[in-house]
């Protein structure tokens, strides 16, 4: 039982080691800002931007699927909000429209996957491109700038603010609060509701789920639609960050989101993953990025480091859960 708990905390241990490494390295070679409150806020802020859509991705990955369209769907949502604010619509209707677009994107994915039985990888590869196209048509193939006076203060404070005391709770970024609250909500849903347990069952073995009378197509559509809601909320944070909407910003974001889930212990073969792990996974990515920039390591190298960390994390995860033959062969003479 204790061992099991320690395994659950695996990603957290990794995060701790990474933080420790960068704070020491930063003290030796950098300027010692890594552990400053300001930098920690930056790290958690950008982690929230990854984590919120990654909660949806966690659901999808637990159910045995994948969503490659998450990135472009996210910027499509952000662009929708930007367009609506540019038109001078009330912010509430903009938000509603944005959430609607996100859920529709998820619904479309879910319906096509359930109805056609084409693997999620292919379906979302297609919709990734479709959502990008729709976004470009809507934005007229250019970045949509919302005039400053149309953006309410609370909205821009969702991401960063010059004055940290203006946050909903002073000194704690609203994005982090949002991510924490939403994460708690999904975690409870995954553990304590029949729907949540059914998602695990489907990811572990779809035929078993069917045998147990679980309505598999309905559950899958629901999973993708709920994920769409989280992606829309991610779109909100994205807009709050850049204050504009550019549909092509999203390409590549889906990989970051998937990486957070995988670093947090999610298994791409389904049935395994945790919301808490995903939060930690997002923090791992952003603290590496921040640490590298503190140490003035060029961006190109940061990509390589993050890539390596992802692969190592998955290998470690395999070691924890199973036994890859090659590893144990090393110890056999």
């Amino acid at each position: 039982m204790v061992k099991k708990l320690l395994w659950q905390l695996g990603p957290l241990v990794a995060l701790f080691i990474i933080m420790l490494f960068f704070s020491i390295a930063d003290n030796v070679w950098g300027e010692g800002f890594f552990l400053s409150a300001r930098n920690l806020r930056v790290i958690s802020n950008s982690a929230a931007l990854i984590a919120v859509p990654a909660f949806g991705m966690t659901l999808i990955i637990i159910s045995g699927g994948i969503d490659l369209s998450a990135g472009t769907a996210l910027t499509l949502c952000g662009t929708t909000l930007a367009l609506s604010l540019k038109n001078g619509d009330p912010v509430e209707s903009g938000l509603l429209l944005m959430v609607l677009v996100g859920c529709l994107c998820g619904l479309a994915n879910g319906l096509v996957i359930s109805a056609t039985k084409v693997v999620p990888f292919i379906v979302t590869l297609g919709t990734m491109s479709i959502f990008l196209g729709i976004g470009q048509i809507a934005s007229g193939e250019s970045t949509v700038y919302a005039p400053k006076e149309n953006i309410p203060d609370w909205l821009s404070l969702c991401y960063t603010g010059r004055n940290v005391d203006e946050y909903l709770i002073p000194k704690i970024p609203t994005s982090v609060l949002l991510a924490g609250a939403m994460g708690l909500g999904v975690a409870v849903m995954m553990r304590y509701t029949v729907f949540g347990r059914n998602v695990f069952a489907i990811g572990s073995s779809e035929s078993t789920a069917r045998l147990c009378g679980i309505h598999v197509p309905f559950t899958m559509v629901a999973v993708y639609t709920i994920a769409g809601f989280f992606i829309a909320t991610g779109g909100l944070l994205y807009f709050a960050d850049v204050k504009n909407g550019n549909p092509s910003d999203g390409t590549g974001k889906e990989l970051e989101i998937i990486a957070a889930v995988v670093l947090g212990g999610g298994s791409l073969s389904g049935g395994r993953g945790s919301i808490f792990g995903t939060m930690v996974g997002a923090l791992i990515i952003t603290s590496i990025r921040s640490g590298c920039s503190q140490l003035s390591i060029p961006n190109t190298y940061t990509h390589i480091i993050i890539g390596c960390i992802i692969i190592v994390a998955v290998i470690v995860d395999q070691l924890r859960h199973g036994s890859p033959e090659w590893f144990f062969r090393l110890f056999r003479k």
Partner: peptide, 9 residues
Amino acid sequence: KQEGLAQDL
């Protein structure tokens, strides 16, 4: 193995 039980659960 495949259908009767969800092996990971």
